[in-house]
Design a protein around this nucleic acid. Structure first.
Length: 505
RNA sequence: GGGCCAGUAGCUCAGUGGUAGAGCAGGGGACUUUUAAUCCUCGUGUCGUAGGUUCGAUUCCUACCUGGCUCACCA
């Protein structure tokens, strides 16, 4: 029921078996990575989870595995993320690790977006080493491959041109030094001094300068860096989103560069499809269509999130339905993970009535016959919190239960007829704070009959005044949970205001 | 145009080389102290189209049609 089960899905098993054949028994290095130039969303999380699944499968086969998250913190800012002030335009071309945090809460622009993601990785207990590329460059980790790249500039340029089909400028260089203004690239390399780890370059204004590539004074261009990084990190496997894997794309060029220039075997690969949010479209940091892992961890457990993001097969596009479809997902998840089954929608109702009072929730669950579900109170409290958060943020209106303000209640009560109002009036006069749920329920029912109201009409009156709807959770226990006194005041208040407003007596 | 993915009951989707399944919706019934409550019951759909392989294909292959996404360093 608890404990971490590592079940290996079919797609991961197949991929891993191939990998063991093509790349040997290990030790393996599984690499994932992303550029923190904007929100790191659950689409990005899919890459990490695919990597994790492969890493786990490798471990199960007895192979040694090192699992790495390569944060591309040295990457230049290309466009400012939504919500970032416009004056950040002037940082375009600067390394995101060297740009101030727009909200001043972290050490840099990069950290601002990286931190929440790292927090999610931690909460999901993913066994991964997070490295920052600006750190690696500054530590000289990429010095050797950078030197190699510079020495093979002509060959790299040829590959780039041939494979991508793009015209590459004459003076192209795989290395982008940082100018005195802090911008990467846009300069011309004049000379490479391999024994000093330096390049001499001239900037747009004709100023000559030098950059030490063992100290992070520049970086490799993206496509070259990808291949170089495989070698430097000893990567044997890396998942890629489909945007990278199309013909002429970055994996195409990197594959050839790895083989012909770096003399390094191309790591195993898994191409995963993208995730869309139902009704909003494909996730995109730049369009502001984004769902953060942290948001989802508010409504489900890490394990459920893992299941949701991977889907049946990450090679297939996923259309995340967090509204109507979510309860079903949760029920299926619970069933398949052997947990006690309380229908999610029921949990949603209870969580909203109990509002954090676990004792009250236990009471209601017992009444509903969910005896087993209350045995683990800690777990239950957690699930109630998930359900409650979901109700707040994602549920459609009919599933939300919120008490009306008095003025809203008066407004809603206009739809009630006189008999219903009189019924509420009498009920209010008979309610007592000491009553329990069943007593209130029975009071509501008997008084309905006495007023000649069908139960449905009577209860509709109650729900209308309290919730603004014609139906709701079982009325007696609900009223007790809100506090009998509160319901009583609400009934009386509505009667008073409605009568004063001109309803005939 | 290249690539990837999909096209199965009204909707959302499972599924397997051998007479097609689930959930929801919908119909019928029970209950009748209310609920998007509970219980019972009801599904012959050209499994996108056309070919091929096979004793036999929805499941494998080919072509095509339709839809989605992706190919400017945004997973």
């Amino acid at each position: 029921m608890s404990g971490k089960r590592t079940l290996i899905p079919d797609w991961a098993k197949r991929t891993t078996e191939d990998l063991l054949v093509t790349h040997g028994e290990g030790p393996h290095v599984v690499v994932t990575g992303i550029s923190p130039s904007g929100d790191i969303h659950v689409g990005n999380l899919r890459e990490v989870l695919v990597g994790e699944a492969i890493a786990n499968a490798l471990k199960t086969c007895g192979a040694g595995v090192h699992f790495v998250f390569h944060a591309d913190t040295i990457d230049p800012l290309r466009r400012i993320a939504p919500g970032v002030p416009e004056e950040y335009e002037r940082y375009i071309g600067h390394s995101v690790s060297r740009i101030p945090d727009p909200e001043v809460c972290h050490a840099s622009y990069a950290e601002h977006f990286l931190a929440p993601f790292e927090e999610a990785l931690r909460r999901m207990e993913i066994d991964i080493e997070v490295v920052r590329s600006h750190q690696l460059y500054e530590d000289g980790f990429y010095a050797a491959v950078t030197r190699e790249a510079l020495l093979h500039t002509a060959k790299l340029r040829e590959i780039l041109q041939k494979v991508s089909g793009r015209k590459i400028p004459e003076h192209w260089s795989p290395y982008l030094p940082r100018t005195t203004e802090g911008r990467l690239g846009g300069v011309r390399i004049l000379e490479h001094l391999p024994e000093e780890n330096k390049v001499i370059f001239v900037d747009e204004d004709g100023w000559e300068d030098a950059a030490d590539y063992s100290k992070g004074e520049g970086k490799l261009g993206w496509r070259v860096e990808l291949a170089a990084r495989w070698k430097a990190l000893c990567a044997t496997f890396e998942p890629f989103g489909k945007d990278h894997t199309s013909r002429g794309g970055s994996t195409d060029t990197a594959d050839q560069m790895a083989q012909e220039v770096f003399r390094y075997p191309v790591p195993g690969r898994y191409e995963y499809e993208w995730i869309q949010i139902r009704g909003r479209g494909a996730m995109s940091s730049s369009k502001g269509i984004v769902l953060l892992p942290g948001e989802l961890l508010k409504i489900m457990s890490p394990d459920a999130l893992r299941r949701m993001i991977l889907g049946r097969d990450p090679g297939r596009a996923l259309d995340l339905d967090l509204t109507e479809g979510f309860p079903r997902f949760m029920d299926e998840y619970q069933a398949s993970s052997g947990q006690l089954l309380v229908p999610f929608t029921h949990l949603v109702t209870i969580s909203q009535i109990a509002r954090g009072d676990t004792d009250a929730a236990v009471e209601m669950l017992l009444q509903g016959g969910y005896r087993e579900a209350v045995s683990d109170r800690e777990k239950l409290a957690e699930n109630l919190a998930y359900a409650h958060n979901w109700a707040q943020n994602w549920a459609s209106e009919p599933l939300k239960l919120g008490l009306l303000e008095l003025s809203e209640a008066v407004e809603a009560a206009r739809g009630l007829d006189e008999t219903q109002l009189q019924y509420l009036n009498e009920v209010a006069s008979l309610l007592e704070g000491s009553m329990d749920g069943d007593t209130v329920q029975s009071l509501l029912y008997t008084k309905a009959a006495e007023h000649g109201l069908k139960p449905k009409q009577a209860f509709a009156a109650v729900y209308t005044v309290l919730l603004g709807r014609e139906s709701g959770p079982k009325a007696g226990p609900f009223i007790v949970s809100t506090g009998v006194w509160l319901a009583q005041q609400r009934f009386l208040g509505v009667i008073r205001d409605t009568m004063a407003g001109g309803v005939e007596g």
